[in-house]
């Protein structure tokens, strides 16, 4: 769905290849979705596969 939004980028990160990051950000299970603003600051996260509405709400809050 992010593909439809020109100002949002979706990046997949392999947790196992980035264990330092996993510890630093306290990721406990996969998948975890982090919502970042334009400065790269985390503004929210969804643990487990995020529902479509969850993504929409989180992105709307960023605008």
């Amino acid at each position: 769905m992010v593909a439809d939004l020109f100002d949002v980028e979706h990046i997949e990160i392999d947790a196992e290849a980035n264990l330092d990051l996993v510890r630093k950000l306290d990721i406990r299970s996969t998948p975890t979705t982090l919502f970042l603003d334009s400065r790269g600051v985390e503004v929210g996260r969804a643990v487990g596969a995020p529902k479509r509405e969850q993504v929409a709400t989180a992105l709307a809050a960023l605008r």
Partner: peptide, 21 residues
Amino acid sequence: MSQVFSKESIQATKSISIDAR
């Protein structure tokens, strides 16, 4: 919640995905 990310330090996904159901 003030972590600043830099893309360069992140490795992309390379694993196999399966139907979660």
